[in-house]
Design a protein around this nucleic acid. Structure first.
Lengths: 245, 245
DNA sequence: CTTTTTATAGTCACTCCGACTATAAAAGGG
DNA sequence: CCCTTTTATAGTCGGAGTGACTATAAAAAG
């Protein structure tokens, strides 16, 4: 026998298709939302699904993910191009799609609270919506499992990376950053302690001098910060005991 | 336009092939080794490569990874079946294989120091060898990048999981466990502190009562432990500053 | 029997973190 | 205009965890 790569004739087999699917998260009005599209055709017509689609012959999976996201959701091209995509994992069970053999590379992205996916862009975008993950329920294919994996991954990543700032607008208050953690982890955090930890981590956030959020809200105006150059959190910011998944 | 999944005719495109590749690590004689095979045919004939091969039409990527590992390395079937495989990530750059479009799902596995891959099994196994990762050098395809990603992943995983016991035989001393950390991280650790940390983490290791390693070695015989039920390390066992990647 | 080697036990100071209290600066209601 | 409410920010205190280190125990080597 030769090794597994030799003597393979791809046309002798039913071909694989390779897809890229995305779990794009945002935090809005105190709950974690995921971007879903409603399927227009069988299978799973009318069901909600993660945005995604086939990888074309000259694309990497990540390129395909960006292209599909732009096509299906009408998010602005600059937004999609700048988006930090992270590969989650690949789903390759033989029967995960009833039509044919489809191997799907899943990606995760975090975005600040954006306007609703442009319905004026017409076409696919009209079927895209932000849905609270708690309300996502049944999804097409194995997308519910992908969503669960993505959710658990981002919860863990908040512990040891600075990724939480990706959920925030360019300038944000520490209260807003804390709300991201509390929303993703579904647990309240002590405000002074959170503040101390964030400020003590070099490069996590940087003060925007002289700026303060002029919200219509009550209370003392909060200082504004922007994301710093750090990417990892050492030591990590662990969620309270009993809130891990 | 419809969404990306609809109206796709896979036969209209050059087909994709999907492969599974493995980075299987072990610790032997004080250095981290990876299992490599020598390629017999073009492309990259004579070069070293990670074991792996094509996913068959009715297999998941993980099933294919196990099958290829057994075929190519002659590792015992029980060993391969019991192996903890973790998906690393998927490599999908269009030109990563010169022959055709191949998307590869990479896996990582950790095994105790095993005998050399059975050369008596004949066939492919004869071309499999444990190679110190420091000596791996150039590999076929993008396997050097996969290996680097895998190495960095396992280093990070030792920090917050109990995975280090996977490198050890069923019963091991704390000194052996510490050697795993020191080898993977390439940094010495303080022995009493390491011991305190491991024993203070519930479920990391369990004492084997009355047993002690009767090595030919000098010094006081060490007590034996076996892997406990815990899977995560809270709080984590962080490597010393400046040794992260 | 002494030295060497390895395992194991214990000490001490410092850091980090959870819980908590106190003060500051805004809005809203009388 | 004062007083309450709300939110932001500052500080305190004790305990857990850890790095650096010392001490003791149990084996082999000379």
């Amino acid at each position: 026998m030769s090794d597994g790569y030799d003597g393979y004739d791809p046309h002798a087999y039913e071909p694989f298709a390779v897809a890229a699917d995305l779990a794009v998260f945002t935090v809005r009005s105190g709950s974690l939302h995921v971007l879903l599209i409603r399927r227009g055709q069988e299978p799973y017509a009318g069901a909600w699904a993660l945005p995604g689609g086939f990888v074309l012959p000259r694309e990497s999976a990540e390129t395909a993910a960006r292209r599909e996201l732009a096509e299906e959701t009408g998010l602005a091209d600059e937004v999609v191009a700048a988006l930090h995509l992270e590969q989650l994992r690949t789903y390759s069970e033989p029967d995960r799609d009833p039509r044919m053999r489809i191997v799907s590379v899943a990606f995760t992205a975090l975005v600040p609270d954006l306007p609703e996916p442009a319905p004026d862009g017409g076409g696919d975008a009209a079927h895209a919506r932000w849905v609270p993950v708690a309300d996502a329920g049944e999804l097409a294919f194995d997308h519910a499992a992908i969503l669960a994996d993505a959710r658990s991954r981002i919860g863990a990543k908040l512990e040891y990376t600075c990724l939480a700032t990706a959920f925030c607008p360019p300038e944000f208050t520490l209260g807003e950053l804390q709300a991201v953690y509390e929303t993703v982890w579904s647990t309240p955090l002590d405000r002074p302690n959170f503040r101390r930890k964030v400020l003590a981590t070099p490069g996590f956030v940087e003060a925007v001098p002289g700026a303060a959020r002029l919200t219509g809200g009550r209370g003392k105006p909060a200082a504004l910060y922007k994301a710093g150059p750090a990417t990892a959190l050492h030591p990590p910011l662990l969620r309270p005991e009993g809130h891990r998944r």
